[in-house]
């Protein structure tokens, strides 16, 4: 059974079509990265899964059941627009939301302290939310989304506003939750995070999903069409007709090959012009490249 199944879903606001014929299956126990440029329809899709918006057409199922006010309660949800009662104490706020999500108050309190400790917020437990920094509020909100260990978690931009240390903590927690069997849907712009942790991706652009599936399979389908070269000496070989585009870094270049081109041809050309090769590696395309290619050509 799929954790989430979206079939042919369309949603328009007045004249604007936000989502048009999106199909998506999220396998149970997987981490899915929901990608797309700004305004692609990611948040609209999530809000429809949360039954906050109702699709104009199509059906959405959560753990096999059509979305309703009931399925909403299965999902741990971190909305894109953050916000909690600003004048409540952090600890009682987490306990309140944890209790609403089915924990006993004692259990919610125990877990609240545990989570606050993990995010190094223990000394802020009795402060009002409004006294916390944006990043700290973000962490509190993350805690409230996962405190009841939901089988399905939807996180809209979970890393925004977090420093690298806290972003790493959030990432670890997500991997931990997956190992405990939770399904996670993650909407983000951070390709490197998706690349590191997602099992599958869904790329949405202009309201349509233009690419979805297992991340590994997608990358393989592109083949090893990129060469990473570090060298000293002349770089005239980079104008070889087999190279479609190049991307220069400080220490070398990443050259994307034209379909069917032979990487050996590039190596040979480099040696012929007298370049000193330090590194020559065949790579799969990065998610970033795939994203740019797919969205730029759509």
């Amino acid at each position: 059974m799929d954790a989430i199944s979206i079939e042919n879903v369309t949603k328009s606001y007045d004249a604007v079509t936000a989502v048009s014929g999106v199909n998506l299956q999220v396998r149970e126990g997987a981490i899915l990265g929901l990608l797309g440029p700004n305004g692609a329809g990611k948040t609209t899709t999530i809000r429809m899964v949360m039954n906050i918006l109702v699709p104009d057409e199509g059906t959405i199922r959560v753990l096999g059941k059509p979305v309703s006010d009931k399925t909403r309660e299965i999902i741990g949800y971190l909305p894109e627009e953050r916000g909690l009662y600003p004048r409540m104490q952090v600890r009682s706020l987490i306990v309140f939301l944890g209790a609403l999500r089915g924990l006993s108050e004692a259990e919610a309190d125990r877990r609240a302290l545990e989570w606050l400790e993990r995010f190094e917020l223990s000394e802020w437990a009795d402060k009002k939310l409004v006294d916390l920094s944006k990043g700290m509020q973000q962490k509190v909100q993350f805690i409230t989304a996962v405190i009841h260990r939901p089988p399905l978690v939807i996180l809209d931009e979970p890393f925004s506003g977090l420093d690298p240390v806290n972003a790493a903590t959030v990432k670890d927690i997500m991997l931990e939750m997956r190992s405990q069997g939770s399904t996670i849907v993650l909407s983000t712009h951070r390709m490197e995070q998706v690349e590191k942790m997602c099992d599958s991706i869904c790329l949405i652009n202009k309201g349509r999903n233009i690419l979805d599936g297992e991340l590994r399979a997608i990358k393989q389908s592109y083949g090893k069409n990129t060469v990473h070269i570090e060298f000293t000496g002349p770089d005239t070989f980079l104008s070889d007709p087999a190279i479609a585009s190049i991307n220069r870094f400080g220490s070398g270049v990443e050259a994307k090959l034209k379909p069917g081109a032979d990487p050996q041809q590039i190596l040979k050309a480099a040696i012929e012009v007298g370049a000193q090769i330090n590194r020559f590696e065949l790579l799969e395309p990065s998610l970033n490249d795939i994203f740019i290619e797919k969205t730029a050509h759509a």
Partner: peptide, 10 residues
């Protein structure tokens, strides 16, 4: 404060 969206998920 957008607390509503969090609340109605429970």
């Amino acid at each position: 404060t957008r607390t509503m969206e969090v609340l109605i998920s429970s």
